[in-house]
Design a protein around this nucleic acid. Structure first.
Lengths: 348, 348
DNA sequence: AAGCGAAATGGTAGCGCTACCATAAAACCC
DNA sequence: GGGTTTTATGGTAGCGCTACCATTTCGCTT
């Protein structure tokens, strides 16, 4: 028997739905598919007359491009995976917000991944996410699995590492100097005349940036010749409750403490609110400093002193950097120090 | 001249990089590409011997599947767009967190979209996002552009609408009854003996669910025969600062108010903290109630009374519902009331 | 030993789009 | 006016994978 001609089912699409394709639009407008493709992706390369006719056909048929097919052909999906350690930490949320807003305007989609501070999970996440042929990638921090770094370096598309700042980045880097940030608050506390200063943090076994901030803090105190190893830590997620517990723990262990430097504003706020509740006067009996610049801080009584980091802006800047590489050629810089600011208020 | 044979450049790939393809793995393992595909996607349909050999080849070559190609062939990318009104509202973040965690475990990627409460933007977002051939979609609320609803209804893949609860959903629905939630706090305030009760909210021109909560509140007061139209609103994003301003505005306008029902805990906290600062006693001079159940509430003094909604769980439930349709056939239910709980504390 | 159904494997043909190159048409240039 | 460039459109051939169906292999029954 002769092999059955495929022509017999010519009209029925092989698989897939009855979606309108670029071919349908091309027929409707009386042009070649490639011209439709150009009219949609690079309109300036199609004559106004045809462009108009094609747009009309698109509207008539309700054509929506199949981005997957386009992505396969051009080896680029217009999307950007953003890999962060956690989605329950407000900091990352705000950065993601900035990233998302910026990319959305430019027509890129943001893909979300979280690693729970685990570099192995980051590695497998990056692997699988590269399978989507994204236009670029945004990662958190400068420390990665060897394989991850190698793979991304050889990938040939823009990569931005955020949060941390350092010389050895894969491609581009936007962040703050963790050591400096920790040192900043420590210095501030010294300047205000406090001597017995403790650092209090959570999750420092996993979040090495928190550790770097402590390191900055420690060095300043060491240089100043005061007790520098006062560290209270809990291995649990950061929360108001954790801040409260650290506060009570520190008070019970070392009643002579003069100032508490918390790893972030959530913890500091938890402590400050507990002080309020117990009638402990801040900063007269004990001073409290934080890090981040959460808006909550300025509504507390006393207003919380903190080191403010522009988190939303960091996201925007990371996205801009990536976009400029995607659209233009080389970007202005490949390393941006987003900076920080000491916000000295009433709690110190 | 004879047309040049393409064979001359046989070995050089037409376009694209030097990525390892399924063909390379197949050669290495001495099987057909389709068998590699099966070994990776449906391992149980490949003999243990071959499976082993293929896995070995995959590891040797460092093969990472091109999900775009797979997506085109199977008309399904393993990803789920989540469309929310805003990424600066904590509620949505927590829901997204639940969604993301659940999908990540199941090997689906979450794509993020925000509409700024604009149904037109939602419509175009949904359009473009469908171009990715996602496995399903999660939308916020039950109100959409006609076109959006029509398109999704005819789409044939699972759709979950979250936050709101109602009869007329596109496909599946997970949320809370906004009216009931608003009524709950109003009833609670009445029960505590307050009579002159105001509702205070932000962004109520755009966020119709906030309006529904007010409506629930209003009806309860109306039924009780007390003044029910006391509404203070500001058209700005929700924040501690907005809560503070609403609080001061209400006090200035109606010094006789006995209780304030805030549209969410952020506003309520802003108000409560301002009361702290001014030495206004809560609830003796004025009571304050919120909505959401943010953890901050229980650390304030007095502890904030609120109506708690399990936001993270709502995300998890939405994702589970969608997954059960994706994996199994029909899910247990197509409509889940995630419920709420009155958390009566000290501020009322 | 022959027969049979189930399980394992492979061949073929796209999925819908765009890169690449060829061609045609228009614009420009002494 | 012939040639060169520039601009606009089209033809062809995949991108790398999986759906579909054909074929082979294997275990088991009679």
């Amino acid at each position: 028997m002769v092999k059955q001609s495929p022509v017999t089912r010519e009209r029925r699409r092989h698989r897939g739905s009855d979606r309108v394709t670029i071919q349908d639009v091309a027929s409707e407008a009386g042009v070649a598919p490639i011209t439709v493709s150009r009219a949609l992706n690079t309109p300036e390369r199609v004559s106004p007359k045809l462009r108009e006719r094609i747009n009309q056909a698109v509207a008539n048929l309700g054509y929506v491009p199949n981005l997957v097919a386009g992505g396969l052909a051009s080896a680029e999906m217009r999307m950007i995976p953003v890999v962060v350690p956690s989605l329950s930490i407000l900091t990352f949320i705000e950065v993601i917000h900035g990233i998302q807003q910026t990319f959305e305007q430019a027509g890129y989609q943001v893909l979300l991944g979280s690693t729970d501070f685990d570099l192995d999970r980051e590695a497998s996440l990056v692997d699988s996410v590269l399978g989507y042929s994204p236009s670029g990638v945004i990662l958190t921090g400068l420390r990665h699995h060897d394989r991850t770094a190698r793979r991304l370096r050889g990938w040939g598309r823009p990569v931005v590492e955020i949060m941390e700042l350092g010389d050895e980045c894969i491609d581009m880097n936007v962040g703050v100097d963790s050591h400096a940030v920790g040192a900043c608050m420590a210095q501030h506390l010294l300047t205000r005349g406090f001597q017995r200063i403790a650092y209090l943090g959570t999750g420092m076994d996993r979040d090495y940036r928190a550790m770097q901030r402590f390191e900055g803090h420690r060095r300043v105190l060491e240089t100043a010749g005061v007790e520098c190893d006062l560290l209270f830590r809990r291995e649990e997620p950061s929360s108001y409750e954790a801040g409260r517990r650290l506060f009570l723990e520190a008070l019970a262990t070392r009643p002579d403490l003069e100032a508490l430097h918390f790893a972030n504003d959530n913890l500091a706020a938890g402590a400050l609110l507990e002080a309020n509740r117990r009638g402990i006067r801040v900063p007269e009996e004990i001073a409290i400093g934080g890090y981040l610049g959460l808006s909550l801080g300025e509504h507390l009584t006393p207003r919380l002193s903190t080191v403010t980091v522009p988190r939303y802006e960091m996201g925007v800047e990371a996205a801009r950097l990536l976009l400029s590489r995607l659209e233009g050629g080389k970007p202005s810089a490949s390393r941006v120090d987003i900076g920080y600011e000491l916000t000295a208020r009433e709690s110190t």
